[in-house]
Amino acid sequence: MEKRTSYGRTILAYVVLIILAFLCLFFFYILIINATRNHAQIQQGFSFLPGKSFWVNLHNVMNDANIPVMSGIKNSLIVSGAAAILATYFSSLTAYGLYAYDFKLKRPAFIFIMLILVMPTQVSALGFVRLVTGMGMINTLWPLFLPSIAAPAVFYFMYSYMQSTLPLDLVEAARIDGSSEFRTFNRIVLPIMKPAIAVQAIFTFVTTWNNFFVPALIISDNSKKTMPILIAALRSADFMKFDMGKVYMIILIAILPIIIVYLILSRYIIAGVTLGGVKE
């Protein structure tokens, strides 16, 4: 009796899972197919088979002066890479400072970061744009990654990870060996934090790569635009006149780097969502 009900529920579970998986994958399947077809074919309707226009579309996208995709990728890579490095390094440093040392403002500092953990940046966007303008950094890439030095969510992850994996005896041993505090952090603590750093670097990279709101306010120069702004420009252009093969190709280019990284590292990324718990 018990076994039969479980059997039925297993089938139900599979059906639901397959439908959901189909929903998640099918849109990307259409995207990839349509990126390989030319405008006329796309207008004729959908096909499950890829066309032969992949290279033509790619060539058209690369040579469109209005949508500088190559510089868009380059800018996005610079901003996301720098943000990932800054966020993980300084968050680890902050977490270590609060984890390994005792000082008067330790608890207030911790509570403060926890309070701003999920505060959206949008609430200070107005002041941010004015400040950046005042600093002469408007229309540059700097303001897109420098704020990552203060990343409360990354800090919290690092702090939780340290609690479960970093014994303070190790720090003490390094001290006895005469290692300076900075050296201890860089040579002993950081290597132990590697798994957490890798996961958070990926997440920060992805978030920054996808970020649209702030870059759209800061960047106006075509050559400094990141990928999301280029996508938005595509949407605001007269859509009907567009070569749809090109549109699909640009969308594909914008999300492909992340998909490739995800295909290779999905196991670690998913584990990373709950990494500390696994480590315990």
Partner: peptide, 13 residues
């Protein structure tokens, strides 16, 4: 892996 993937996709794209 499949159901988590859309979370990483650029929302604007």
């Amino acid at each position: 892996a499949v159901i988590y993937m859309p979370n990483l996709i650029m929302a604007s794209a």
